[in-house]
Amino acid sequence: MEHNKEQMMVAALENGSVIDHIPTDKLWTIAQLLNLDKCPEEVVIANNLESKVMTRKGLIKISGKFFSEEEISKLAVVCPNIRLTVIRNYEVTEKRQINLSDTIINIVKCANPVCITNNEPMKTYFNVKDLTTLKCRYCGKEQSLDSIKLK
């Protein structure tokens, strides 16, 4: 029943994007990251849906929204394993797993208060290590991907 409901929600989208497989504890972070509170388009946010892959999951559907690569890399930083579906004219035109890139530029804040990036108007830059750790290009300090703060 739940599954059908979800299919209905996705199918009802004429043009736009669906972000699926969002961990339930990350749903609101993603919503905030995408500034959905200011989005004038039709938005569906669902949480604690049943999932075969991850027991429970969150899902966001945004009408008329197509993500840029920069936005996608932002999403990947917060949730490395979400799935993005693009719908055009009621048809699924693209379905992909979002992957974390090797470098993350100007998305995450360095956790080190005495890092130059926190004291100078400049971009942050991190190298991704083992898909779990970010290393600041400037101060060299590492932080876990689980505990990042966005810029």
Binding site: V114, C115, I116, N119, R137, Y138, C139
Partner: peptide
């Protein structure tokens, strides 16, 4: 006194920077 200052300085100029200690 800030960490990473030398790396950043080296990125904003073509004049070579020698790091004499960054934090």
């Amino acid at each position: 006194y800030l960490e990473g200052a030398a790396q950043y300085a080296s990125e904003v100029t073509n004049v070579p920077i020698i790091n004499a200690g960054d934090g």
